[in-house]
Every structure is written in C-alpha cells, then in structure tokens.
C-alpha cells in the first residue's frame, strides 16, 4: 500500500470516526443521566436525515436554512420520545424501560417505512460539500475536512455547556443522584428532557453529515450506526463525553483500516465493532475513560 493511499484511508477513517463520535455522545449523555441505552437514538438519527430530505427536496428550502431548523425539529422529536416512552417508567424495573425503548425504536422505524416508503431515497448533496480537493496525489472531498471540524466545534460547545454553565451543573448533579438533585431544587424531568434534546441535536448533526457522505437514506439506516455508536460509547467509557469521542475515532479508523489492509474481511466489516465490544467488556468493562462504579446492595 502506498503512503498516499494510506492517507486517503486515514482521512476517510477520521471523518467516519467523527460521525460515530457525534452519535456516540448522544448515547453516553443519556446513559450517564438515566443509566439506560436509548435504543431509539439510531432512529432519531435516521429521522433527521429524512427531515433534511423533505426540507431540501420536497419544499425546496436552501440547505443553510434547512439544516438549523432540522436540529431544532430533531431535538423536539427526541424530547417527545423521552416524554412518552421513558418518563412514565422512571421508577419501573430496568427490563421494562429497555423493552419500552425497543418499542419506541421499532415504532420510529416502521412509521418511517409507512410514511416515507421502504425504498432508499437519494440525499441532496450541495456542491459546497462534495467538491474534491487535490493535495499532491491524494484527492479528498471537502466534506472529509468539514466533518471533523464540525465535530470539534460541537464538542467544545458541549464541554463548555456541561462544565461552565448552571444547566451543565444541574446535568452533572442529576447524573450522580436523582433524589439529591431534586432536593437541591433541580427539576429532574426538565434536565433529563434537555439531555435528550441535546443528544438528539448531535444525532441530527451526525445524520446530516452522514447523509452528505453516504447520500442514500432508508428507514433502517439508523440501526447499524446506532449499535456501532453505542459500542463506541462503551469503548470510551460510557457516561464520559471525551471517552465517546475517543471510542468513535477508534471504531471509525479501525473499521476503515481493517478493510483497507485485509480486503478479504470486507464482508465482516459490521462484525468488527461487536468483536471489539466483547473484548473491551471482558478486559476493561469500564472502557478507556470510565470510572469504576462500586455495586450497591
């Protein structure tokens, strides 16, 4: 393999990793605050791409107006899912909440099949993003540069929100202990709802860029990325935002390089993440950045 080709694969891996990172943050935030996998996260991501499709193709709204509107719409969708599927079960056994989450995920997928049709649709790709830049002999889409940049911008914003603002402080408090947070005058439900909103917004950012990178959208497109990003969150240490980003990059770069170096394993690409998950859970269950949590009796 020539060095140029390697660079090409690496840049692909980094942009894929950034996408994984964005979606993984949503998982890790919700897990941190509720100790729950948001099974519907991948489907919220899928819904965001369809919103973008309808905004640009059906209504003909320019992309720079559509994209911000979609972030808001997706946040609302995430909050609705939380209010209907998760909030009523706050004190229920965990297995019930998981089942409800799976139900919500299936509902979104099948609603999308009924409303938008099962046939994949082409995602609109404005030229601004898909133009090709040549560096030496390596040709790279502009998008490949934009994706990591956008990820970093959102990551900085989020870190600021969580560590420096009052809302962020409330989120950290709720993730430690719901009861105590309530005693301190924090509206726990509001904070959880906000967390879902932020997570869904990031899923929407990821979804839009995913659509630009792989311009074909279908109702089941969120399933595999959803599971992989959860795995990324676990690898990095669930509940930890920096961990989710690291996990996302490890997964994205690892996947692309695996296929690049061992083309025979291309068919097994989707299995790579799960093998990694089993390994990390066996040898370092708390992930790279996670804290050890003692089991309470």
């Amino acid at each position: 393999m020539t060095f140029d080709l390697f660079l090409q694969h690496l840049s692909n891996g980094i942009s894929l990793g950034s996408l994984y990172a964005l979606i993984a943050i949503g998982y890790t935030m919700v897990y941190g605050i509720l100790r729950l996998i948001n099974f519907a996260h991948g489907d919220i991501f899928m819904m965001a791409t369809y919103f973008a499709f309808f905004g640009i193709v059906t209504f003909g709204i320019p992309w720079y107006i559509t994209f911000p509107v979609i972030l808001v719409l997706t946040a609302l969708l995430g909050m609705t899912v939380e209010a209907t599927a998760y909030r009523p079960l706050r004190d229920a056994p965990k297995i019930s909440i998981l089942i409800s989450a799976i139900g919500a995920s299936f509902l979104l997928e099948n609603l999308a099949i009924v409303l938008f049709g099962g046939v994949p649709k082409p995602f609109p790709t404005p030229d601004v993003f898909t133009d090709v830049v040549k560096i030496g002999t390596v040709s790279i889409q502009k998008l490949t540069f934009y994706i990591p940049v956008v990820t970093v911008i959102f990551l900085i914003g989020l870190t600021y929100l969580i560590n420096k603002t009052k809302v962020g402080m409330a989120m950290r408090a709720v993730s430690k202990d719901h009861e105590t947070a309530r005693v301190m005058g924090i509206n726990v439900n509001q904070i959880i709802s906000l967390t879902f909103g932020i997570g869904s917004t990031l899923a929407a950012v990821g979804g839009i860029m995913w659509g630009l990178k792989f311009p074909q959208i279908s109702p089941l497109m969120g399933v595999i990325p959803g599971m992989k990003c959860f795995i990324a969150a676990v690898i990095g240490g669930i509940g930890n935002i920096k961990g989710a980003v690291i996990g996302g990059f490890i997964l994205g770069v690892g996947e692309i390089l695996l296929v690049a170096f061992l083309p025979d394993l291309t068919g097994y690409r989707d299995a790579f993440a799960f093998v990694l998950l089993i390994l990390i859970l066996l040898y370092k269950p708390t992930g790279i950045m996670g804290e050890q949590i003692a089991e309470k009796v």
Binding site: F230, V275, P285
Partner: peptide, 13 residues
Amino acid sequence: DYLAIATLGFGEI
C-alpha cells in the same frame, strides 16, 4: 443493557 447489546450484536454477527 450491556448483555442486551452483546447478544444483539451476536445475532447480527
């Protein structure tokens, strides 16, 4: 939920 994801992943594998 870790078990859920691991077994789900196994089914996919």
